[in-house]
């Protein structure tokens, strides 16, 4: 039983015109695979990411935790004066917190990205078409039980009309 329709394009603009048409027909596009990021696709598929917010939170967390640790270590845990400097040395603490803010922000954002996109070393994936990472733009539409055979025919014709080099049912 075929469960999905794939339209394969070799041109970014043709693929985008097909996407727009499918969107106008009120059909649901499951995913689009491209060899490089195409911003128009993000807009059409209404893709969003909350990664900036996550990075902001991670960085803030890093800075605050580091500052608290430094304060605790130098003022509470072992108060030792050296070089006549105050126990609570604000300039040094800010500097260290700044670096750790960046470290936390970068490190945890990368982890968040990998977790959210479910990417990990050695992951086995189903590759729809080997050309995606080379030169193919692939529109993937899942077949739903409520889709009639006319809908599927219409989809096929839309994909072809807009210059798909191949339309596959998988």
């Amino acid at each position: 039983m075929n469960t999905a329709i794939l339209g394969i394009y070799e041109d970014e603009d043709l693929m985008i015109s097909a996407l727009k048409r499918i969107r106008d027909e009120k059909m649901e596009i499951s995913e689009v695979f491209t060899p490089y990021p195409v911003h128009e696709v993000f807009k059409i598929l209404k893709r969003k990411t909350r990664l900036p917010l996550a990075t902001f939170l991670f960085s803030s967390l890093g800075a605050i935790l580091t500052y608290l640790f430094l304060y605790w270590a130098s003022v509470l845990s072992y108060p030792l004066i050296f070089g006549g400097k105050p126990l609570h040395s604000i300039p040094s603490f800010i500097l260290i917190s700044f670096v750790m803010m960046i470290f936390f922000g970068v490190f945890l954002s990368v982890i968040a990205f990998l977790v959210r996109s479910k990417l990990y070393p050695g992951k086995k994936v189903k590759i729809h078409d080997l050309r995606i990472t080379d030169n193919a733009f692939v529109i993937l539409i899942d077949k739903k039980p409520e889709m009639s055979s006319d809908d599927i025919k219409l989809l096929n014709s839309i994909l072809k009309e807009h210059g798909a080099i191949e339309v596959l049912e998988k």
Binding site: V38, V41, Y120, P121, K123, V125, I132, T133
Partner: peptide, 12 residues
């Protein structure tokens, strides 16, 4: 890492 080039992954 099992990269497939989906639009969501690219955006992220």
């Amino acid at each position: 890492f099992g990269w497939v080039g989906s639009s969501q992954d690219w955006l992220r």
